[in-house]
Computed example of a mutant assay.
Amino acid sequence: MAERIKAGVLGATGAVGQRFIEALTDHPWFEITSLAASERSAGKTYENAANWRLDSQLPDEVKGKDVVPVDPSKVDADVVFSALPSSSAKTVEPEFAEAGFAVASNASSYRMEDDVPLVVPEVNPDHLGMIEQQQDNRNWDGYIITNPNCSTIIMIVSLKPLLQFGLNNVNVATMQAVSGAGFDGVSSMSIIDNILPYIKTEEEKMENETLKLLGEFNGSEILNPDIHVSSSCHRVPVLDGHTEAIWAGMDDNPTPEDVRQAFLDFDPGLEDLPSKPENSLVVWDEPDRPQPRLDKNIGNGMAVNVGRIREGIRYIALGHNTIRGAAGASVLNAELLHKKGKL
């Protein structure tokens, strides 16, 4: 087997950090060589520093690995996956990029920067062309590439096949799992027997990130499409899996069967990426599917499920928010970077 690429995880002890470790363990292209976290965790073994909360077992290869500070001089890696909070990522990620690291970030800090690629491989792989511009602008040897917000990712994969029909308007109402807020993000007293009708900054992220993702990169800037996006975001008492009700307006007025076939035919041509599911979109014809409990883990949690396609066009989309919507998305981005010769 060819030598694997050295990979580090920043914010390795948190919810998304643990998903990164799960995704990178036994990965054919990447090898976990550094786990970095806060001063509270640095110096401990990962087993002692992290409260492992996933339903998979804590991988043996990281149990005894020492956690290092979030410092470029302490991290031994070629690519780092950032699960840092946005407040920390704002200052830390540029330090790693300046030091020559490729930074695959799940944080929101740099998603909307003019020279930072915001990428979902099935949707806009050509936006990786911004990397050289970013390095020139900022005089960095490395670079930052980001993936969008978890709810945006699930929606955007389903919107990509609809561009062929002249997509012009998107309305979405989300039902988002509590894991999207992190282990301590929503108290049980707040969410049990309840729905929270507001998630701070979530609606703005969905509306703005969607336009950047669907925009045309002309070699120097991204030109936003003439599409109106409106979102309403809600937290529901579901552990994992974001469900979204989407209304899509299109110039060509396709029928539900036209849309269903477009979903079935969707082929982004990424079969050689290890984390890409067999089908990026899984279509359900049953009237009560998809459901988070039953369907979130399809494609190892990397598939986006769609169903209830009705006149309008209205449909339901579902995806695993901390896999497809977070860590898995960053790993898929890094696989695309490697395929393009940028790692």
Score class of each variant (00 low, 15 high):
147 N>T: 13
152 T>P: 04
152 T>M: 05
159 L>S: 06
160 K>C: 05
162 L>Y: 01
165 F>S: 04
165 F>G: 07
168 N>I: 04
170 V>Y: 04
178 V>N: 07
178 V>W: 04
181 A>H: 13
181 A>M: 14
184 D>A: 10
187 S>M: 07
193 D>M: 12
195 I>A: 15
195 I>E: 15
197 P>F: 02
197 P>Y: 01
198 Y>Q: 10
198 Y>M: 11
198 Y>A: 13
203 E>K: 07
204 E>R: 14
205 K>D: 14
209 E>Q: 11
209 E>F: 03
215 G>P: 02
215 G>E: 07
216 E>F: 06
216 E>A: 08
217 F>M: 06
217 F>S: 10
220 S>C: 10
220 S>I: 09
220 S>M: 14
224 N>P: 09
226 D>Q: 12
228 H>F: 07
231 S>L: 03
232 S>T: 11
237 P>K: 01
237 P>W: 02
237 P>A: 01
239 L>E: 15
241 G>F: 07
243 T>Q: 15
244 E>T: 06
244 E>C: 10
247 W>S: 15
248 A>P: 03
249 G>D: 05
250 M>L: 05
250 M>G: 04
251 D>K: 12
252 D>I: 00
254 P>A: 01
254 P>T: 00
254 P>L: 02
254 P>G: 01
254 P>Q: 02
255 T>W: 08
256 P>N: 00
257 E>V: 05
257 E>H: 12
258 D>E: 14
258 D>N: 10
260 R>H: 12
261 Q>K: 11
265 D>N: 12
266 F>L: 11
269 G>S: 03
272 D>N: 12
273 L>D: 02
276 K>Q: 15
276 K>R: 14
277 P>F: 03
280 S>N: 12
282 V>F: 10
